[in-house]
Design a protein around this nucleic acid. Structure first.
Lengths: 344, 344
DNA sequence: GACCGGAGTGGAACCGGTTCCACTTTTGTA
DNA sequence: TACAAAAGTGGAACCGGTTCCACTCCGGTC
């Protein structure tokens, strides 16, 4: 356990000053005679010298690091997002610190403090919806914030990357309405979140287009945490007038919802036509494979990283950007036309 | 974008020296008069002061940070592992930097360099199997390394946390043998990896116990990368004497293997009794639900973190630890007795 | 041949913490 | 009451980089 060489060791061994070594390391910071550059590089290689990140950070005031704050890596949506972000970031020479909040505002607050302590240059996050002043403070301290998937309306100055939630929900709903279903259950995220609201709005709007009245009993906005999806499914199925269609628009609740459907032996699409918001690979391994709204996770990752890096390098105008990407609707065999049409 | 207060700002505002403030921050480093501690704390709160992590790191030489190097967050096994490690680490006040290798030795090497630059105190990793000298160097530089799930036999001095691979594979195989199956396909990880080898060994050993000869054609050790699982399944099913049982012991290939089974319309367990190494929640949503070897991911996470933190705090003996945790076999309805017994 | 501008260089301050050490005050004990 | 030990404090060096600045060479221009 010998200790690693420092820039002064390199300078001494190469017979130059530390300034020269530093300039070799950061070429844009000044000129170096080709011969000296050569010999410095050789010494660096021989000694196996690597600059300490902390020293650089202390001196320049910030790190080429971005924080990624997601709710839960266990959720395939976040896992894939994280994987892509980490991957993209590396190709830009940027590091990612991944933190999870479990949808808990306290943990989110902790994470933000930590990120601040580490002087990260930017944060990509799926905010819980709380900690508004904390997010604002982070931004006022010069940390670039990008919200992905969700947003907080009160924070109008942060960039947002999301899918077209209203539109996606509308398309899924219209698909079922088009098959003749008029009683369509909706399990969405909390109405306190932007995704929850938008998807409910899309669901409403589809009903309007089809001149079908929405039964409020059919709409369940439930938390992301826990597995309330199962209970929501249970209570929807227990309604006197059972729905014949179901849209699970709460990504975190897809698994528990589908589990309940399987457990109760609900025939899909016989008893219930189902569409879920999730592009989890396993959705096509159930029987029948589930129709899904496929969120383009790669796009979300690329755009949010692009935004955060762009801001960190100051090559973006000050006005906040809002990027909405398309989500595909992928019909599979979990939906079928309503056979007995109740209105005729 | 005002700049954040430093320890000297706090000292000035509280009318004390920086030493006192520092001692308030790190109580074990020296005494402070209660009255002054009080006023320093108040000033810290008023100013919203937070110590810069980089400054501390530079001064003490290392960070309370551990690197987590996994192949691919998209794989639910790693995703869950990461989630648990991040979670546990936070409760110890430790941060986690997650990196992915995609099973590529070059990317792994990059990750290690980066981790070294960041002066992390420890690394938890599922090594690709390459970069032996690099791992050794990391260790000689004082970074505590713990391998999880897999190991590299050449590196006898690193701690290892894994499941009882031989035993798990043996139990799964014996279960199928006990149901009368004699031709059991095995899709495992590469024989160049410790998990691959151990699981094949368990499979062999079960056959020995049952006095059944192993047909080498039935054993497929395939890479973790890509989705060779599908092809392996395809070629096993194409054998003149088809297997009646299948064990997928390559966690990364479970999805593509099952996908192929579904696509080819193989009846489970009618045509094929199936057991997979994975505790992915979706395995019980397929029809039928799959029998699984459930890896106790939480245990793996807890133990590896415990080891790495223990070493970082120097409260562990120098001898390397090897921890093997039990994996449960969870029979579900994807296995059935072989009906026509070929031997009678 | 005097003068100017730029390439190349090294010295030293600086970033924001921690810690060692010398020093003063308090406390406890004989 | 005297004195040693302990509690409390501030100064300053240090960690390992970056960067500003002053300075020395150059070659090219009137």
């Amino acid at each position: 356990m010998k200790k690693a060489p420092t820039i002064r060791d390199v300078a001494a061994a190469a017979g130059v000053s530390v300034s020269v070594v530093s300039r070799v390391l950061n070429p844009e910071s000044g000129p170096v005679a080709p011969a000296k550059r050569e010999s410095v590089l050789r010494v660096i290689d021989e000694l196996g010298y690597r600059p300490r990140a902390a020293a650089r950070e202390l001196s320049v005031g910030h790190t080429p690091t971005v924080g990624l704050v997601v709710a839960d890596l266990t959720n395939p949506f976040f896992a894939q997002l994280a994987d892509r972000v980490v991957w993209e970031a590396r190709s830009h020479g940027v590091q990612v610190v991944v933190m999870t909040t479990q949808e808990d505002p306290h943990l989110e607050a902790d994470s933000l403090d930590t990120l601040l302590d580490r002087s990260v240059g930017g944060v990509i996050a799926t905010p819980t919806g709380a900690n508004i002043e904390k997010w604002a403070r982070l931004q006022s301290l010069g940390v670039n914030v990008v919200f992905v998937d969700r947003t907080i309306p009160e924070l109008s100055s942060v960039d947002v990357v999301s899918i077209e939630n209203v539109d996606s929900a509308r398309r899924a709903t219209e698909y079922l309405l088009g098959l003749g279903h008029t009683r369509i259950g909706l399990i969405s995220g909390p109405a306190s979140t932007s995704t929850g609201r938008s998807r409910i709005q899309g669901y409403q709007s589809a009903h309007n287009n089809f001149k079908v009245q929405v039964d409020p009993q059919l709409v369940r906005d439930i938390p992301f945490r826990g597995d309330g999806g199962g209970d929501a499914v249970g209570s929807l199925l227990a309604l006197p007038e059972r729905p014949t269609g179901l849209i699970v628009a709460n990504t975190a609740q897809v698994q528990s919802s589908v589990r309940r459907l399987v457990q109760t032996g609900t025939s899909i699409p016989g008893d219930l036509s189902v569409i879920v918001f999730d592009d989890n690979p396993w959705t096509e391994l159930t029987s029948p494979p589930l129709s899904v709204i496929r969120q383009p996770i790669g796009m979300l990752a690329v755009h949010s990283l692009e935004l955060v890096l762009g801001r960190m390098q100051g090559r973006l105008p000050d006005t906040p950007r809002r990027i909405e990407v398309n989500a595909d609707f992928l019909p599979r065999s979990s939906c079928s036309p309503l056979l007995l049409s109740p209105t005729r």
